[in-house]
Simulated assay, not measured.
Amino acid sequence: MEDLLELNYGYLFEEELINEIKALGAIKHVEAGDRLIDFGDHIKFMPLLLKGAIKISRQDDNGDEILLYFIEKGDTCAMTMTCCLGQKKSEIRATAETEVELIMIPVEKMNEWVVTYKTWRNFVFESYNSRLTEMLEAIDSLAFLNMPERVEKYLRDKVMIVKDTELNVTHQEIAYDLNSSRVVISRILKKLEKEGKIELLRNKIKVLDF
């Protein structure tokens, strides 16, 4: 844990803060596909990601789910921070996109560290800024891209996140993430395959042109 913590956060935080994280943090290992946080959960710990990637999604009033953004090693989730600081129930679902290792920080330390450590305060503000930018990109995608363009962007983003052109994702999973239907997604994927941009495998998609 200490090696990953130093590698991903040592350049961001002063030694005193790193030592506090080591002393207070609890290491957690999560397999790909497992949920870390669900809608309505009471959040008692804030995650710092050491390894892997996590998918953050949100649910509307009709129960439909849509992808907001991904977080990677060296990141944390701004939405989780918001729930922690406001002592509210979770408004997001966090799912391990890949095998994940993270360190869980007690939420009561968040306010204390904002006052005590300038580097932590900067980290919190930068996390909010980065996630806001990504959510604006998600809104732009909904507003300005048609569904085939959204599918292509989704696949490109996935390749960047998992660092592999062969994606373990089903048509139904893409439909959930993009708030569409499996029939529509399957039709688009078959068209992309005919265009030579992807290859459809069993429960996998190989991206050939990204």
Rank of each mutant, 00 (worst) to 15 (best):
M1F: 14
L5K: 09
L5T: 10
L5W: 09
L7V: 06
Y9V: 03
G10E: 08
Y11R: 07
L12H: 06
E14D: 15
E16V: 01
E20P: 00
K22R: 13
A23F: 10
G25I: 01
A26T: 11
A26E: 12
I27H: 10
I27A: 07
K28C: 06
H29N: 11
E31I: 01
G33N: 02
D34K: 13
R35S: 11
I37M: 06
I37F: 11
D38R: 09
M46V: 10
L50E: 05
G52P: 02
A53Y: 03
K55N: 14
K55L: 15
R58N: 10
Q59Y: 14
D60N: 15
D60W: 10
D60R: 08
G63M: 12
I66R: 13
L67K: 12
K73N: 13
G74K: 05
M79H: 14
T80E: 15
C84K: 02
L85R: 04
G86Y: 07
Q87G: 02
E91V: 15
I92C: 02
I92P: 01
A94K: 03
T95C: 06
T98N: 05
E99W: 01
V100H: 03
E101M: 08
I103Q: 03
I105D: 00
P106N: 08
P106K: 06
P106W: 07
E108W: 11
K109I: 01
K109H: 11
W113Q: 01
V114Q: 10
V114T: 09
K118F: 13
K118Q: 13
R121P: 00
R121Y: 09
R121T: 05
N122D: 15
N122Q: 13
V124Y: 12
E126K: 12
S127V: 02
N129M: 09
N129S: 14
S130G: 05
R131E: 14
R131Q: 13
L132E: 07
T133L: 07
L136I: 12
L136Q: 13
S141N: 08
L142F: 13
F144K: 05
M147P: 00
P148A: 06
E149D: 12
K153H: 11
L155A: 04
V159W: 12
M160E: 14
I161V: 15
K163G: 11
D164T: 05
D164F: 02
L167M: 09
L167K: 04
T170I: 08
T170Y: 09
E173N: 09
I174H: 02
A175C: 12
L178G: 05
N179C: 14
R182E: 08
V184P: 00
V184E: 12
R187T: 10
I188Y: 06
I188R: 02
I188K: 03
K190Q: 12
K194W: 06
E195V: 03
E195I: 04
K197N: 05
I198Y: 04
R202S: 11
I205S: 03
K206S: 02
D209H: 11
